[in-house]
């Protein structure tokens, strides 16, 4: 019979099935996200009966208050500015070190390392990326933190501490823990991610562009500067922001080295806390609707921060994609 091979097969087509499976996946994600936000807003509600979100964001006092004769909690104030400061400071310190070093390492891996060296190095990067953060935390708490204090922290404090109070440190008795050391530890932890993402984007710059510029009489360095970095720029920024997101959310390792001190520290070389480390170290004692509400508010602020970063990534990618990579 003619046209037999053209007849539609019975049942659901593979395309339809695939669309439904993937569609279900997206739906689940959406439900999870909505559920999470709704739950956290709900948890945090009791807190707003005793204070405003402004107090939460601006005050550096974190006090569970006292119970008066009538059994009411009085004088409670949950101000998260110290933790917010710590989160922003540690993650910026992390990115400040990890971004340039990671991108340079990626350039080396793709452009300069002979294949025989690049393969094992890439493997090592992946290996470091897979180390659980608690291991980094232990390393820092055990040994690394002191080494950082005696080397890079000491160097920065003695070079800039005199004019920049936020970089000052008492050379006789440096603090046992510091925001800076937590940030530097984060830098080490996010470095593999920066390298891995940057490497992919640097590799994806077409050979035709590299050769085009070499053909114009460009040196290897000029190719990197004028063609590879600008072309891969969006991906590099995206990778750094992704790593920034990880640094912001990192909890256990930071909790182990930052000192978990209340308030905004006077110097980066003083102990402090981050939003994530504050949740981790306070959640055990939090009891009662209001204290739990304060924890939820911390969680929400963390969520908000990472959402803003994701949005920035999206806007960047879209804006650059439309203009073919031009600002």
């Amino acid at each position: 019979m003619a046209g037999m091979e053209l007849r539609r097969a019975g049942g659901m087509s593979a395309d339809t099935l695939f669309r439904r499976i993937t569609g279900t996946g997206v739906l689940i994600l959406f439900v999870v996200l909505t559920g999470l936000v709704v739950a956290f807003v709900g948890y945090s509600n009791p807190l707003w009966t005793i204070q405003s979100p402004i107090d939460f964001l601006t005050s550096s006092t974190w006090s569970t208050g006292t119970i008066d004769e009538s059994g009411q909690i009085v004088d409670a104030l949950y101000g998260a500015s110290g933790a917010l400061f710590g989160t922003v400071a540690t993650s910026l310190i992390a990115v400040l070190f990890a971004a340039p070093i990671g991108i340079l390492a990626a350039i080396f891996l793709v452009e300069f390392a002979p294949p025989r060296l690049a393969a094992p190095l890439t493997f090592i990067v992946e290996l470091i990326a897979a180390i659980p953060s608690v291991v980094f935390g232990l390393w820092a708490a055990g040994d690394l933190s002191n080494r950082l204090r005696d080397t890079i922290e000491w160097w920065i404090a003695s070079s800039f501490g005199r004019f920049l109070p936020f970089l000052s440190e008492d050379p006789e008795s440096p603090a046992a823990d510091s925001v800076f050391r937590a940030g530097f530890l984060l830098a080490i932890m996010i470095l593999p991610m920066v390298v891995a993402v940057s490497r992919e984007f640097i590799r994806s710059v077409p050979i035709s562009l590299r050769e085009g510029y070499i053909g114009m009489g460009a040196t290897k360095w000029e190719v990197i500067r004028d063609v590879i970095l600008p072309t891969a720029r969006i991906g590099l920024i995206g990778g750094v922001l992704l790593a920034l997101g990880r640094a912001i959310g990192e909890t256990i390792a930071v909790t182990m080295v930052i000192g978990n001190a209340e308030g905004v520290p006077s110097s980066l070389f003083q102990p402090g806390q981050t939003v994530a480390s504050k949740i981790a170290s306070n959640i055990g004692e939090a009891s009662g609707e209001i204290a739990i509400g304060a924890m939820a508010a911390l969680g929400l602020s963390l969520f908000l921060l990472t959402t803003v970063i994701s949005l920035v990534v999206r806007v960047l990618v879209r804006r650059f994609a439309v203009t073919g990579g031009r600002a």
């Binding site: 562009l209 009489g217 460009a218 073919g324």
Partner: peptide, 22 residues
């Protein structure tokens, strides 16, 4: 060789304008 390539220019099979340049 870098200077040689300025004297001997090359046009490639696939047009390859630099995407980040105007």
């Amino acid at each position: 060789p870098v200077r040689a390539r300025r004297v001997v220019g090359m046009v490639f099979q696939k047009p390859n304008p630099f995407p980040t340049m105007s």
